[in-house]
Nucleic acid binder design. Structure first.
Lengths: 211, 211
DNA sequence: AGTTGTGAACCGATTCACAGCG
DNA sequence: CGCTGTGAATCGGTTCACAACT
C-alpha cells in the first residue's frame, strides 16, 4: 500500500522524523539491521507503533529479521520528501532569524537556507556569522523565491507583521510556512502553516510545574 | 470541581494559553463579556471545547450571559500559574539563546529571564542587546538558580551538551525545562521537560508540502 | 430567551495480540 | 523460531445535544 488509502496524522509524521534521527544514530554506530523491538527499547518508543507507522506507507522490513538500517533511513527520508534539497527563506533577521539561518538542522538533511530578509536597511546587505547567508531587503523576496524555486518559508518577525509576511510568502509561491510569531495567522488553503508558539510552550510548561 | 479529579491533557493546557491570548485581545478592544459562541467564531475555535476545557477547572461563566473577560483572563492566568513571576534562565548564549532572552513573551505575563549562561568566555561578561540580560559563565548557574529561586530553564546549546545541561539545571532545582536542542533527553521524574524540536517541525512541514 | 456545564455519542489514535511469513 | 504487518480492542480526546440555570 503505497500512499493514498489512509489520511496520515501529524503525530505519525512527527514520529517518522524521530525514527529517521534514531536510524542516523544507529548507522553512525555501525548497526546494519534493527528490529522494532530493539529500536523501541533503545530510544524509548513503542514497537507496535513503529511498525504501524511504517505500515501506512509500505512494507519495509523482513519478517524474522527486522529492518535494514540503511534502507529504512533512505525510505523515511524519501517519505518526508528530503531526498532532494528543499530551499528555505527566513523573514526577519533579528537574533531569532539569524539563529535559524545558521541552524545546522535547517542546512542539512534536505534543507538549505538561501536567504534572510528584513525591512531594516541597517540589517540588510550583510550576511549571517556562521554560514554567511545573505540578508536582503524584503522587496527582493518575491523575485528570489521564484528564481530559486524556494518551497519553504519561516516567519521570524514581530507578531504585528506576521500576517502580512504570510501573504507575501504565499503569493511568492512557497508551499509551507513555519511561523514563530506568537500570533494566530489566517490561513490560505494553498500553503501549509505550522506554528511554533514559544509563549504557549512556556505557559504549558508553567502549568505542569509543581510549585 | 477545582482540580484533582481529572488528569488534564497537554492539548487542553495549550488551549488555555490560546484562550488567555484571545481574552487579552478582547480586553484591549474594550470587551467586558463574551460567550463561548462569540469567542469561538472570532478566533476559529470550538465553543463546546472552550466550555469543556474550562469546566475541568471550575465554573467561570454565567448561564444566559457568558464569561467576564476580565475575570476569565485572571482565572486562566492563575490556572497556568502565571499570577506570580516565574524566573527563567537560559543556557547557551548563541543567537538562539539571545533571541529567547530578549523575547517579549519570556519577559512579560508571568515570566522573567534573569540570566543567560555560556561556557565561552568570549560571550560572558556582556549583556543582551535589547533587555540587557547578563551573560554569565555556566559555573555560576547553580548558585544563581538557587539564590533567585529560578523555576524554569531553557536549553539552547548544541545537542552534544544538552543532556549535561539538563542534569545541571535539574540539580540546581528548576522545575521545568524547555529544550531546543535537537536531541532526545533522558528525563528525571522531578523535572518536567518539553521539547521544541525545530528539525522535526521542519521535516513534518516538508512532508505535508505538495511538490 | 440565551448560554453554561455536562453526560453521551463519536471519532481517531494507540496498544494488544496473533496470523503470516522469512 | 522470531519478527513483521495488521485486525481487533482499547483508550482518550472532541463534538453533540440538552438539561439546568440566570
Amino acid at each position: 500500500m503505497s500512499a493514498k488509502g489512509t489520511p496520515i496524522s501529524e503525530a505519525t509524521v512527527n514520529r517518522l522524523s524521530v525514527y529517521l534521527r534514531c536510524l542516523q544514530i544507529l548507522e553512525r554506530e555501525g548497526g546494519t539491521t534493527i528490529s522494532s523491538q530493539e529500536m523501541a527499547k533503545r530510544f524509548h518508543l513503542n514497537s507496535a507503533q513503529i511498525r504501524k507507522d511504517l505500515a501506512y506507507f509500505g512494507t519495509f522490513g523482513t519478517r524474522g529479521v527486522g529492518y535494514s538500517v540503511d534502507n529504512l533511513k533512505a525510505q523515511i527520508a524519501r517519505l518526508l520528501k528530503l531526498h532532494e534539497e528543499k530551499r528555505v527563506v527566513i523573514v526577519g533577521a533579528g537574533h531569532l532569524g539569524q539563529a535559524l539561518a545558521d541552524f545546522q538542522g535547517f542546512n542539512s538533511g534536505g534543507f538549505k537556507v538561501v536567504a534572510l530578509f528584513d525591512i531594516d536597511p541597517a540589517k540588510t546587505g550583510k550576511a549571517t556569522a556562521k554560514r554567511e547567508i545573505p540578508i536582503l531587503p524584503v522587496e527582493e523576496m518575491d523575485a528570489l523565491v521564484r528564481a530559486r524555486r524556494v518551497t519553504l518559508g519561516i516567519i521570524a518577525v514581530h507578531p504585528q507583521s506576521a500576517q502580512e509576511v504570510y501573504e507575501q510568502l504565499a503569493r511568492a509561491g512557497v508551499k509551507g510556512i513555519l511561523n514563530f510569531a506568537p500570533t494566530q495567522i489566517e490561513e490560505r488553503p494553498s500553503v501549509r502553516l505550522k506554528a511554533v508558539d514559544l509563549k504557549i510552550n512556556m505557559e504549558t510548561l508553567s502549568f505542569f510545574t509543581t510549585a
